[in-house]
């Protein structure tokens, strides 16, 4: 465990907590894409299949449980909570995210490290996570104005994968045989998808103006 990895996990945890905090306190999910949340729940469900079979560390197991519980509870909140669900704008959140699931699954069948169920599901979760933010970014473009918590959520979510990239670079130079092209490339694609959001987020922070994404 290196500092980049720990910082990445803490940033990822913060993004989930910011989102849960927003939904739980102001009882609203305005500006949040349910589809991205559903994709993330699927990412964790397919990635943490080894939760009960491979024990790595208490930290590892604890974080997996937190991510699983939080992602599914966010989906539950937006879908079923009597107050929160009213603020979900399904007319705007129209990204056909099922079109992301199938290509990721097919790609995982073709490009993977080992052709086993667990490995393919793990690889599928990597590819899916790389594109899971798309419905949220499309929604932000549509609704244009971004409230602070949503902006922070997306920023932290993008930042965590950038920190993971630093972690992979660090591990590549410090651990022999540490080569995971699939993880690295999908992580890079994921971070690049956030690039333009980061640019506008930084601009709004530097000029101290409200975050506006161009149409």
């Amino acid at each position: 465990m290196n500092i980049f990895r720990l910082a990445g996990d803490m940033t990822h945890l913060a993004s989930v907590l910011v989102l849960l905090l927003k939904i739980h306190t102001i009882k609203s999910c305005a500006g949040i894409s349910l589809k991205t949340q559903e994709l993330y729940a699927l990412v964790f469900a397919t990635r943490y299949l080894d939760l009960f079979t491979d024990y790595i560390s208490l930290y590892n197991t604890l974080m997996k449980l937190i991510f699983l519980v939080s992602s599914f509870s966010i989906v539950w909140y937006i879908r079923h909570h009597k107050i929160v669900r009213r603020s979900y704008d399904k007319d705007q959140d129209t990204f056909r995210h099922y079109f992301l699931v199938l290509p990721c699954f097919l790609l995982a069948l073709v490009i993977n490290e080992k052709f086993t169920v667990k490995e393919i599901m793990w690889t599928f979760s990597l590819y899916l996570e790389a594109v899971a933010i798309l419905p949220q970014l499309v929604l932000l473009q549509r609704t244009r104005n971004i409230d602070n918590l949503t902006g922070q959520y997306v920023f932290l979510l993008g930042a965590y994968r950038s920190l993971y990239i630093l972690n992979w670079i660090y591990r590549y130079f410090t651990e022999p045989h540490y080569v995971h092209w699939i993880t690295w490339i999908s992580g890079l694609v994921q971070t690049l998808l956030y690039a333009d959001f980061f640019y506008y987020y930084f601009q709004s922070w530097k000029n101290n103006v409200k975050l506006e994404l161009p149409a």
């Binding site: 080894d50 590892n60 997996k64 490290e113 793990w122 045989h177």
Partner: peptide, 10 residues
Amino acid sequence: YQTQPVKDEL
């Protein structure tokens, strides 16, 4: 032989 590296990342 190289053992399959365990998935220790989240």
